[in-house]
Design a protein around this nucleic acid. Structure first.
Lengths: 326, 326
DNA sequence: AAGGTTCCCGTGAACGTTATCGTTAGCTGG
DNA sequence: CCAGCTAACGATAACGTTCACGGGAACCTT
């Protein structure tokens, strides 16, 4: 009921106690110049003694920047994202930044709403997994706040990016399947926009017309349905490459239900290496992307941007993890 | 580079454009009284027209409360929490609130640091999954900011709580196992503090001395190790109840590796019903807790608290989901 | 008709910080 | 010895909002 009843220790209290002006206190804690080493230490000591904490509001009011950054993701429930978020949390905490998460369900309207909130809240910077193919929105947000986009490139040179190299990841998976002797390959593509690399690399490697690619919702249920469709089109299919692990797991389930042995009769390889992948039976062969590292790198790149460096563009290398489905 | 170069539309601009004072504008947007319906509509219209957004900083400066709430969890990577977070995100978004997430790894020092940040950032309220058994810290935080704790009760009457009824959940699971004819039961308890209900209910139902309970880290690896220990102590064990699904999945793996059929020779039931539970082979029988609903309820309770209502204490009922391991 | 409400609305002040500019003392160089 | 510089610090003014007042008009009440 009486929240906030205790009086706040302000910068003036510190100034008074240290026998200096509040401006000097400000200089001491913000590592600005124009202050002698002696007084700075004294000020810092009294700050410690009084347990003074600067008001984030008052500070943000002047600087228009908060000590927090925004993370826009489609769905924290999608097993790909918790690890990404964790990497981002840890790296942000190390920098003394908080992270406010926005779920969008890959809905453009929700993405716009999140962007709106972000500029309103005056966060220090933003990290975004955007679905919206229209670059206008991205550029608009990038103009208002330092921005790093994941798995996507922005035409705006001030928007940094970190992406996983899907093309070579896909090629590695297909090469692996060919090494195992498979010739009739099929693909389960995820029904998501803006991520054509996997499908493109697949078609490129096969010189195919696309009839061997079926698109389905990127879920387990989508995987079982998609696999049936694929088998209906090409009964001789002997190996399946999936857009992500959820689809792959669904495919394996459908295969087992149909009485086909995995990997004896049909091999399956997924993408992402979510935690579940190692625990299903048989454990899933998949292209591993380091999600924690992705999250970490995203805030690292954002941090460098906040420190005044130019926008970087980094690429993370995936690697194949061979388990029991191939 | 030139972030924030565009000039801000302030409340004074709106006031000028609408031909009223800024106080009237404030009244219009905050649904305060003392304003006629006519002028309020006019003000709202000009707000819309000028695309005015109140400064969160300036507002927070006066009210000491931001439009954001904090969510303290041990680990977003633990499959239990993404769904909780999602429920919290959705409910918060519906209320126009942002959510800043703090990962603690159940480390008291990290929990203290998160609490520190929370009061510093002046969030509107906080939701916490605390590990710290010492109630002093919880009460201290609760005194500074409206607080709702999950799966735990606070002695402080101003701290609200939402908990899953672990005791009856556990009893239901054990009754199910007994119905199946099992008599030699064992339990895999998680090595976490502050959650004795499951173990207690288990021991209570058995009238046992605790020798049939082995404690292990609440992970898959902990489950396999714990099960071996359990079998070493009581080779005749025919049914295992686990603290959570991770432990249960680990147990099933160990069982299969040891050549024991599940559920033919040994039955296993987990707790939580994480997404993985339905996908392992055989699919896991488990006590389902509605994690999304938990997250949703947590912010609902917090919201009512913010609206001035007294602290509530709610309990969510779990239910048994029988699948393939029992 | 005088006093009392109620309904609207505006004026000043305050929240706690940082930016800008000014001031002082001490030092340098010619 | 004085102009000019620099280092260290302080005073004032913002940043944009809400709170505590106060006051005028209209509408009752007796």
């Amino acid at each position: 009921m009486d929240h906030g009843s205790s009086v706040r220790v302000t910068i003036d209290d510190v100034a008074r106690a240290a026998g200096v002006s509040r401006q000097t206190v400000s200089r001491a804690m913000n590592d600005k110049g124009d202050i002698s080493e002696a007084t700075r230490r004294k000020v810092l000591a009294t700050i410690e003694e009084l347990d003074y904490r600067p008001s984030a509001f008052a500070r943000g009011m002047r600087t228009q920047k908060a000590g927090t950054l925004a993370l826009i993701i489609p769905d924290i429930t999608n097993p790909f994202f918790p690890a990404v978020a964790r990497g981002a949390f840890d790296a942000a905490a190390a920098r003394g930044l908080g992270v406010v998460v926005h779920n969008t369900d890959a809905d453009p309207a929700a993405e716009a709403e999140a962007s709106r909130r972000i500029v309103d809240d005056g966060v220090a910077g933003a990290i975004a997994f955007f679905e919206e193919v229209d670059d206008g929105a991205v550029t608009a947000l990038g103009r208002r706040v330092p921005l790093v986009v994941a798995d996507r490139h922005s035409p705006d040179p001030t928007v940094a990016s970190v992406r996983s190299d899907f093309a070579t990841g896909t090629r590695t998976a297909i090469a692996h399947l060919r090494d195992r002797g498979h010739v009739e390959l099929g693909m389960l593509d995820g029904a998501v926009h803006g991520k054509p690399e996997r499908r493109r690399a697949f078609l490129e490697a096969l010189g195919d017309d696309g009839d061997r690619v079926v698109t389905a919702p990127a879920t387990v249920a989508g995987g079982t349905a998609g696999l049936r469709e694929l088998l209906a089109r090409h009964p001789g299919t002997t190996a399946v490459f999936a857009f992500n692990d959820l689809l792959a797991i669904g495919a394996v389930r459908a295969l087992k239900a149909a009485g086909r042995r995995v990997p004896g009769e049909v091999a399956v390889v997924g993408y992402d290496d979510i935690p579940m992948a190692a625990l299903v039976d048989p454990p899933l062969t998949t292209v591993h992307t380091d999600k924690y590292e992705l999250g970490r790198t995203l805030v690292e790149v954002l941090g460098r941007r906040l420190d005044g460096h130019p926008a970087e563009h980094r690429t993370l290398a995936p690697r194949l993890v061979v388990r029991g489905t191939s």
